[in-house]
Design a protein around this nucleic acid. Structure first.
Lengths: 125, 125
DNA sequence: ATCTATTGATTACAGTTGTAATTTATAATT
DNA sequence: AATTATAAATTACAACTGTAATCAATAGAT
């Protein structure tokens, strides 16, 4: 599938949070948070449709949009390629950067500990 | 600073591993690994110079290039923006994806545990 | 001294992206 | 029915990207 640009991802993020959703609602959310013009949001919706990242159903005069790609799948694929490009494939150094800059929340740490515990249980040699 | 494109990052990664380094060496490495034409690599070197991401010194007929931006700084800034865009700023879900797909190495896990321990020591309320 | 090969500089060119404005179709209003 | 407002579709346009080819300068070879 075609790459999703940064601006487009903002739109997709909205649909992942709430869907189906009308163009006007997306516009309302994004003109606010991103200070975008209505036309800009419409363009991005169109491009996402062309890229087959989202779909829609006619709802009278307007459309109701919904994602066609799964958020987890997308997150995983992008994470892998990001980590590969910037960290030669290893994830710990990324987390180390966050730790160094105090960007880890207590919740993050708790979840990470949980992941590690599970991993170790499963990989008990 | 100007954004560094994907293709450019490949070049920068080479300089972060070895520097100073001549154009011909960079070309040798990247034509191999990335199947790029020599001219392509030269273009990318030029663009990185224009973006002030790398610099060079004349070495007779040719140049010796070196990075001007710090790899750790770059990694951190990009990681933060990536995590923000895809995971609303939380890093644990990214690691969870890696765990789920068995992309965590033993070394990763060990380092993560170390990070957590340190974090907890420092955040002992 | 002239020709040639090499290296850096400039130019090319189509596709993508950010950021809309314009056009067209249609639903609502007068 | 004619006019207006609204939503979607099409068009715009410059900057950035990927991917080179061509041009220009200069160091070596003859």
């Amino acid at each position: 599938m075609k790459e999703i640009s940064n601006a487009e991802l903002n739109v997709l993020n909205v649909l992942w949070q709430q869907s189906p959703i009308s163009a006007s609602e997306v516009v309302a959310l994004l003109t606010q948070s991103n200070d975008w013009h209505e036309k800009t949001v419409k363009t991005l919706l169109n491009r996402l449709v062309k890229k087959q990242a989202i779909g829609f159903e006619k709802q009278g005069r307007s459309y109701l949009y919904h994602p066609l790609i799964d958020q987890s799948d997308y997150q995983l694929k992008e994470s892998e390629s990001f980590i590969e490009r910037l960290f030669s494939g290893r994830v710990a150094p990324l987390v180390a950067g966050f730790a160094r800059e105090n960007k880890l929340s207590a919740k993050d740490v708790e979840e990470l500990q949980q992941l590690i515990d599970t991993w170790q249980k499963e990989n008990k040699s």
